[in-house]
């Protein structure tokens, strides 16, 4: 028995269904479009939503980059990239600049995206209100009436208790002034990159069976209060490898005494800076 697959694994009917969903998602920025998500050969939680979006979008001329935690060489990124090499044969790259299509988990690259690029986000939980309201019927109604009081109360309570909004990743955003949306679990450091992005941003949640999108040049605001403006993370030390002071850093524990180093989470950015130096 030999098992043959269609280009990009999905059959054409499934791709067509997802493509129609993506067009709706782009037309209604930030709105979660339900779609008939399929089981992929990778487990739910590993990026099946992103994989289905990429599979529906990708063509023979594309150059694909896959990152997880900002890095091209983490095991899950390697696995997803090799899956697409197997089922499409397209060119792959680690270079943000060279890629036409980027699938990501938890980061937006440091190198600014350019017009024409498409970024596909893997999304575990597309509903920003889910931890505040478990029922899907309820949250859908809240979105329908743009009733986001729950979230404002939550953020306000954070401030009352901690003096800060205690959300450091998957920080909720208002898209085009209408829909509260989850940017996927990127650190809030990356949120400003969503605003007026030159690239098209597509979000796929496989297990939750939802798609959403942020078209290029779209207003994306991270929630904040006048007296508690939105701020991103910063580090006192630069990257130990490339010296960058502008990139998101991972903390590395180097010995049992608890010594620490900070290095760029974006491996392509860090490598190219070191090559230039």
């Amino acid at each position: 028995m030999k098992i043959e697959f269609n280009f990009a694994f999905l059959d054409e009917n499934t791709k067509r269904m997802i493509r129609r969903g993506l067009l709706k998602a782009v037309a209604i920025p930030g709105y979660q479009v339900p779609f008939g998500s399929r089981e992929m050969p990778l487990p739910y939680g590993w990026g099946t939503g992103g994989i289905q979006v990429t599979a529906s979008v990708i063509g023979r001329d594309d150059c694909l980059k896959v990152i997880d935690q900002g890095a091209d060489d983490t095991t899950n990124a390697v696995n997803i990239r090799s899956f697409f090499q197997k089922v499409t044969g397209v060119a792959t790259t680690t270079s943000t600049a060279r890629a036409s299509l980027i699938q990501t988990r938890h980061r937006i690259p440091e190198t600014p995206l350019r017009p024409g690029q498409i970024m596909v986000f893997q999304v575990p939980e597309p509903e920003p209100l889910r931890t505040l309201e478990a029922s899907e019927q309820e949250t859908r109604t809240l979105h329908a009436y743009q009733d986001y009081g729950l979230m404002h109360v939550k953020l306000y309570e954070d401030i009352a208790r901690h003096g800060h909004i205690a959300t450091s990743y998957d920080y909720p955003v208002m898209v085009n002034g209408r829909y509260l949306a989850s940017p996927s679990p990127i650190p809030k450091f990356d949120n400003p990159k969503l605003h007026h992005s030159p690239a098209l941003l597509l979000f796929g949640a496989g297990r939750e069976k939802r798609l959403h999108a942020i078209p290029p040049w779209t207003r994306v605001e991270s929630l904040a209060f006048d007296d508690h403006p939105f701020e991103v993370q910063g580090w006192e030390a630069p990257c130990s490898l490339c010296g960058s002071r502008d990139s998101y850093l991972d903390e590395i524990v180097t010995d049992n005494a608890g010594s620490r180093l900070y290095v760029c989470s974006d491996t392509d950015y860090c490598t190219s800076r070191r090559e230039e130096a």
Partner: peptide
């Protein structure tokens, strides 16, 4: 070439809707 031609057409449509 239905598989690839519809993919190319879809990408043109996606761009058209993303940048109206």
């Amino acid at each position: 070439d239905p598989v690839h031609d519809s993919q190319q057409t879809f990408r043109a449509m996606l761009s058209a809707l993303a940048e109206p």
